[in-house]
Simulated scan of single mutants.
Amino acid sequence: MTSTTFLRPWQALSAVALTAAALVVAFVLAPATLASTAATSGLASESRLIATFRSAFVGYWRTGAAGFGSELQPVVDYWFRYHVAKALLAAALLAVLIVLGVLSWRTSLRVSGVRAAGLAVSGVLSTALAVVSLAAVMANIHGMAAPFGSLLPMLFGAPNASTGPLPDTLSQIRQRLADGQNSPALEVIRSDYVKFHAVMAVEGTIVVIVLVVLSVVLWRGFRRTDRAERRARRLLAAYGVFIPLLTLALAVIVVANATTAAQPLPGLESFFAGGW
Rank of each mutant, 00 (worst) to 15 (best):
M1K: 14
V252A: 08
G59Q: 11
A198H: 11
V99Q: 00
Y82L: 15
P244N: 08
L23C: 06
A161W: 00
L29C: 11
G118T: 04
H197P: 13
V58R: 12
R234S: 08
T247R: 02
V58N: 11
F271K: 05
A26K: 11
L151Y: 07
V217G: 00
R81F: 14
V199N: 06
L49S: 07
V210L: 13
L72W: 03
A198F: 13
L265I: 12
G67D: 15
V216I: 11
R220K: 14
P184E: 12
L49D: 02
I253F: 15
P31T: 03
A251R: 11
R62L: 08
A65V: 09
L134F: 09
R231Y: 02
F272W: 12
A261F: 05
P31C: 08
Y60P: 15
N182V: 08
L34R: 01
A91K: 11
A139Q: 13
P74T: 07
Q181W: 10
A198D: 13
T127S: 01
L34V: 02
T2D: 08
E203A: 07
T163Y: 14
A261P: 07
A145N: 05
T225M: 05
V212D: 09
S41A: 15
N160S: 13
I141E: 07
S126C: 00
A146I: 04
G67W: 04
D192H: 08
G267A: 15
L186S: 10
L29R: 15
W10S: 12
A35H: 00
R220F: 15
R230V: 02
S122E: 06
Y239Q: 07
V254R: 03
A44W: 03
V25S: 09
V207N: 00
F6M: 13
T33P: 06
H83I: 07
I50E: 06
W61I: 10
G118H: 01
V124L: 15
L246M: 10
M138A: 12
G149W: 11
Q181A: 13
A258F: 14
Q73I: 08
A258N: 03
R174W: 10
V75T: 14
D179V: 00
D226A: 05
A95L: 10
K195C: 01
I206Q: 00
A201K: 00
A12M: 07
D179G: 00
T169Y: 10
M144H: 10
V111I: 08
A237C: 04
T163K: 12
S14C: 12
G59D: 02
L246E: 09
